[in-house]
Simulated scan of single mutants.
Amino acid sequence: MIKVQTENFNQQVEYDRLREASNTGAVVTFTGLVRDINQGEQITALTLEHYPAMTEKALTEIVEQAKSRWSLIDTTVIHRVGELQLLDQIVFVGVASLHRGDAFAACEFIMDYLKTEAPFWKKETNADGKSYWVDARETDQLALNKWNVE
């Protein structure tokens, strides 16, 4: 399941849905939050923008890549857009698999691709009320690079 939405999500509901599938032996989840500091700057809000058709296609491709690399039973990716406040939930990635190794790897893979390849545009607002667009960090690109080793 892939959703891009403005509304918040319930982690427990999403987890319960993933663990219902037969043969599930492991469920790994990740939830990203709006943090109050980014690269040394005090942040008060975060706005995420996207182009719906492009975003959903990219998220589908990321999940399909994960399914081709690991034995997965089910996946959930929920990404919020719009204006978010400190500690709001931004993203949920959940992976169900027969074994924990596949679930952990696929969850990390999906997040690494979301941080660098998904077409979301992020604008932060700092404590002075100034807003600015944020580029992907070098550390996110380095995390992605480990999946490209053949």
Rank of each mutant, 00 (worst) to 15 (best):
residue 36 D to K: 11
residue 63 V to Y: 00
residue 21 A to R: 12
residue 93 V to R: 00
residue 137 R to F: 11
residue 143 A to D: 12
residue 95 V to K: 00
residue 137 R to D: 15
residue 19 R to W: 01
residue 105 A to V: 03
residue 121 W to C: 13
residue 17 R to K: 14
residue 122 K to W: 07
residue 95 V to L: 01
residue 96 A to P: 00
residue 112 D to Q: 07
residue 80 R to N: 09
residue 84 L to E: 03
residue 147 W to V: 05
residue 125 T to E: 11
residue 5 Q to A: 11
residue 15 Y to A: 01
residue 70 W to L: 01
residue 43 I to P: 01
residue 43 I to R: 05
residue 75 T to M: 05
residue 122 K to L: 06
residue 17 R to Q: 12
residue 40 G to T: 04
residue 141 Q to L: 14
residue 14 E to K: 03
residue 64 E to D: 13
residue 83 E to G: 09
residue 142 L to I: 14
residue 109 F to N: 09
residue 15 Y to N: 05
residue 137 R to A: 15
residue 43 I to D: 02
residue 119 P to G: 02
residue 33 L to W: 08
residue 60 T to R: 13
residue 90 I to K: 08
residue 92 F to D: 06
residue 124 E to R: 10
residue 138 E to F: 01
residue 59 L to W: 03
residue 97 S to N: 03
residue 91 V to H: 00
residue 134 V to K: 04
residue 76 T to F: 00
residue 127 A to Q: 12
residue 63 V to G: 00
residue 9 F to D: 03
residue 118 A to G: 10
residue 100 R to K: 06
residue 76 T to C: 08
residue 52 P to C: 04
residue 50 H to K: 10
residue 127 A to T: 09
residue 74 D to W: 00
residue 87 L to M: 12
residue 97 S to D: 02
residue 56 E to D: 12
residue 115 K to D: 06
residue 60 T to Q: 15
residue 92 F to R: 02
residue 133 W to R: 06
residue 142 L to Y: 04
residue 136 A to Q: 11
residue 80 R to C: 02
residue 34 V to S: 01
residue 68 S to M: 12
residue 53 A to D: 12
residue 30 F to N: 01
residue 21 A to M: 06
residue 112 D to E: 11
residue 4 V to R: 03
residue 144 L to G: 07
residue 120 F to N: 04
residue 68 S to V: 08
residue 24 T to F: 01
residue 75 T to E: 01
residue 17 R to T: 11
residue 44 T to S: 12
residue 72 L to G: 01
residue 95 V to Y: 00
residue 143 A to N: 14
residue 125 T to C: 13
residue 58 A to N: 07
residue 114 L to K: 00
residue 40 G to Q: 07
residue 67 K to M: 10
residue 3 K to H: 13
residue 92 F to M: 10
residue 52 P to G: 10
residue 36 D to A: 12
residue 100 R to E: 03
residue 13 V to R: 07
residue 15 Y to P: 00
residue 62 I to N: 09
residue 41 E to V: 15
residue 123 K to F: 10
residue 43 I to K: 06
residue 44 T to A: 08
residue 53 A to F: 09
residue 54 M to K: 01
residue 72 L to H: 03
residue 47 T to F: 11
residue 144 L to S: 09
residue 62 I to G: 07
residue 110 I to A: 01
residue 60 T to M: 09
residue 130 K to E: 11
residue 145 N to K: 15
residue 51 Y to R: 05
residue 148 N to A: 13
residue 24 T to L: 04
residue 94 G to E: 01
residue 3 K to F: 14
residue 72 L to Y: 02
residue 141 Q to A: 11
residue 7 E to P: 03
residue 121 W to S: 13
residue 86 L to R: 07
residue 118 A to R: 08
residue 49 E to D: 15
residue 50 H to N: 14
residue 126 N to E: 07
residue 15 Y to R: 10
residue 84 L to T: 03
residue 79 H to Q: 08
residue 79 H to R: 00
